[in-house]
Amino acid sequence: MANILIAGGGIGGLAAALGIAGRGHRVTVLERRDSFTELGAGIQLGPNAFHALDLLGVGSPVRARAVYIDELRFMDGTTGERVASMPLTGDYRTRFGNPYAVVQRSDLYEPLLESCRAHPLIELRGNSQVVSYERGAQGSAEVTAVLATGERLTGAALIGADGIRSAVRRQMVGDGDPRVSGHTIYRSVIPMDQVAEELRWNTVTLWAGPKWHFVHYPIGGGAYLNLAATRDDDAQEVVVGRPAEREHVLNEFPELGETARRLLELGRDWKSWVLCDRDPVDVWTDGRVALLGDAAHPMLQYAAQGACQALEDAVVIAQLLDDRSEDDIVQRLEKYSATRRERTAEIQLVAREMGRRLYHPAGPDAVERNAMLSGLSTEDMHDKVAWLHGERLA
């Protein structure tokens, strides 16, 4: 039985802890904040996420909190035209073996947290920010996590699940600050009873316009509507959760058509973020240290796969640490990296392209995009997402 250290108590860190402890190892999760909480609004979960959650043993409680979406709907945000819709019931669920759903971030996080708290092999430690690590001497079976307090904790492996600004990645990869995308996203969550009956769609709806797009979908068991409006404004400053005046948000989307405008005007208490990601890298391991989730492959939201890929990471790394032995941990972590790098790198790059080619084109490029999407059959659309949504880990 090895003692595995995990830096970061977010979705990826808790999922990894649950998976690894399920293989018989002791796990210590080191979280920088005082308490284990997860901020944020809505998350989209594809069938691949539910498959991973089932393997981690928390599929049922997440399903109980989820809203099962009927379709992904792509709209022209200026004309109001419905360009394309991808059904997510019937043939979709049969083909991919699980539903497509949306949840509040806490509806995914809390079942993971509750399961970790109940597991006898998992210790959750707050106020324990990992700032660096120390490899043991050559041939050593240990690695040391150095905390901001100066405390040192030793284990058989360290998993860096400490997010897009990961201290573990900074030491391992040394690739500086995250890449600023130049896109600002404004988010608001409103009670569903404030939404007109005819606009309470059980869909993830995206309105695309010139250098902007607007997404909305129900969360909280249908009690709330999640609003997220993104502007390609060449922003260069990193912004995280800054309050935004309602009038400012409305003024950022003057071309928005009538129906989408009605929904945007419902938003209150807006907050803004400037979206960031990183370039894919080949180095995810350093001896007994490995990266996971946003520390390994931070991606823009446009493919709706960030949380899904962290869950896949957690399943794979747990499967490779598949017994209580401490032997060959370095090789097992290297195999994890080799197994996951290509898929996540492709998703990182596809997410960037989706923002440029699908969501934000203008003029003739938008006309061409609409023609391409409207020409796809339901089967065509399911084929296009099969590589993302159809991943089923053994």
Rank of each mutant, 00 (worst) to 15 (best):
A148Y: 00
Y109C: 11
T203P: 14
E334R: 09
Y68R: 08
D269M: 03
L373V: 00
S140Y: 08
E110S: 15
M299L: 11
W212A: 07
T154K: 09
H51T: 09
L275E: 02
L199A: 10
R63I: 11
E255A: 06
E353M: 12
R82D: 15
H213R: 01
N370S: 04
A366G: 14
L275I: 04
E353W: 13
L153Q: 12
R125N: 14
I4W: 04
R26F: 09
G390P: 07
S181M: 14
L45M: 02
D277I: 04
D380Q: 01
R356C: 05
T89W: 15
T28H: 06
S337M: 07
T344R: 10
A167M: 10
P218H: 03
R125K: 13
P87S: 03
P191F: 02
H119Q: 14
D54G: 05
D279V: 11
N127D: 11
A49V: 06
H248R: 15
V289I: 08
L300M: 05
L88V: 09
S35A: 15
L250S: 03
L292A: 11
L393P: 01
F96G: 10
T37M: 06
W207H: 15
R268L: 13
R105N: 09
P361K: 05
A145M: 04
E391Q: 15
L264H: 04
A118I: 10
V103W: 02
S181Q: 12
G24S: 00
T94K: 15
R117D: 08
G136L: 08
A137M: 11
V239E: 04
T339K: 08
H389V: 09
P210S: 10
M299Q: 01
L250E: 13
L256V: 07
F50Y: 08
Q104T: 14
R105M: 12
P61L: 06
G10R: 00
